[in-house]
Design a protein around this nucleic acid. Structure first.
Lengths: 109, 109
DNA sequence: CACAGGAAGTTCCTTTTTGAAACTTTTAAC
DNA sequence: GTTAAAAGTTTCAAAAAGGAACTTCCTGTG
C-alpha cells in the first residue's frame, strides 16, 4: 500500500495516521496547543528544515486541522481549527505514555 | 533537531514520538493487537516492503515494545510486550478520532 | 532422495524525502 | 536608503523508501 492510500482504509486508525502519522506533524500540532502560531516560531522550536515545515503546514491546512490567517502582507498565523482541537486526547495519551514509559534520563555527566 | 535526538527531549510527547512517530510503526502495533505476529502476515496486511518491515520490527524489539520469539529455526513470532500493551489507549484515541473526524466515504461510483 | 514451496530475510538499484544552505520578496526599523 | 526580519523558494547532497530478484533453512510430496 502506498502511504497515500491510507486515507481510505477501512481502519479508522489508519485513516488517522494518514493525517498525523508523520514524524513532525504531531509536534507541530503540539506546538499549536502551546500557543505557537508562526513559521519562525515553529522553526526554532522544532529545528525542522523550512522545506519540510512549509510542506507540513500546508498539508495540515489542506486537511482542515490548521487555519492560515494573514496577519500582515505575506505573513501568517497558523492556528488550530475546531477539528484540530479535537486531537487533544491523542496528544494527551502520547504525553502520558511518554511520561510513564520513556522517562527522561538525566545525564550521568 | 535530528529525529534521533527526540528520545531525550524534555517533552514526553516528543519522546513517545521517537518510538512510535513513524509512518508504519503504529500500524504494525495495531496489527499486533489484532493478533498478527509473523513477518508474512504483517507484510500482506500492510503491503509494506520487507526492507522497511524488517527495520521497524527490529526497532520495536530494541525499544522493548515487541518481543521476538523463535517458533521454528529462523522463524519468529513478534508479540507485544508488557510495555507494548500499554500503548492501547493511544491506539484507542487514534481509532476514535479517525472514526469521528475522518469517516470513510463510500465511493460514488 | 530430488524438487517445489513457504518463511524470513538480504541485496542491489531506482525514486522520494530530508537536510543544509543560500537566495527572494515584502514590510518594518533605524 | 541601508539593514533586518518573516516566510518562503531553489538548489544540491545525503538518507530513507520502494521494487524486484536472490538466499537459506525447513517442510512436505511423489
Amino acid at each position: 500500500m502506498k502511504w497515500s492510500n491510507l486515507e481510505n482504509d477501512i481502519c479508522p486508525v489508519a485513516r488517522s495516521l494518514s493525517v498525523i502519522g508523520d514524524r513532525w506533524t504531531l509536534l507541530i500540532i503540539r506546538d499549536c496547543f502551546l500557543g505557537i502560531s508562526r513559521f519562525q516560531q515553529f522553526q526554532s522550536s522544532l529545528d525542522i528544515t523550512r522545506h519540510v515545515l512549509t510542506d507540513r503546514l500546508n498539508r495540515l491546512v489542506e486537511q482542515g486541522i490548521l487555519i492560515k490567517e494573514e496577519y500582515a502582507r505575506g505573513r501568517y498565523d497558523y492556528r488550530l481549527s475546531e477539528t484540530g482541537r479535537t486531537l487533544e486526547p491523542v496528544l494527551r495519551e502520547l504525553f502520558n505514555w511518554g511520561k510513564r514509559h520513556r522517562p527522561l534520563r538525566r545525564k550521568t555527566a
